[in-house]
């Protein structure tokens, strides 16, 4: 299973069908604190860096950017009623959206698990 990470603490998991599932890391959910609202993107193409989601914790709002160019195929509807799933299970039930990358090679340019682990240790 291929997993890559961004400096903005997103994880990207390559699925068997070539699509990519995106969420935030355990480190990120812990730093944000209890989430009370998640606004997810529309089903359309977004460019890398475009704002695709807003996370509201009890403390503040933060933005999630599109990690690589691509089209959003599916969003995790369960989060609108249960945003706490992001805190409880960030890597599985707390996923945000599934996307098709514009360039399948783009995933490889992101951080590996080891590089990400070093980033959050620093």
């Amino acid at each position: 299973m291929v997993m890559r990470f961004t400096e903005e603490h997103e994880w990207l998991r390559l699925e068997a069908d070539g699509t990519i599932t995106v969420g935030i890391t355990d480190y990120a959910q812990d730093a944000l604190g209890d989430l009370v609202f998640v606004q997810l993107p529309e089903l359309r193409a977004y460019a890398q860096g475009e704002e695709v989601a807003v996370l509201e914790s009890v403390k503040a709002a933060s933005n999630i950017a599109m990690p690589i160019d691509g089209e959003i195929l599916e969003i995790n509807e369960a989060l609108s009623d249960a945003p706490e799933q992001v805190n409880q299970d960030p890597l599985n039930a707390g996923w945000f959206f599934r996307m098709r990358p514009a360039d399948p090679e783009a995933l490889g340019t992101l951080l590996t698990e080891d590089s990400y682990a070093q980033l959050i240790k620093a």
């Binding site: 604190g33 209890d34 009370v36 914790s57 009890v58 403390k59 706490e84 805190n87």
Partner: peptide, 12 residues
């Protein structure tokens, strides 16, 4: 301290 390990929701 803004929160302890319990977290804001559970502390509330």
């Amino acid at each position: 301290p803004v929160q302890y390990p319990l977290g804001v929701l559970k502390e509330h």
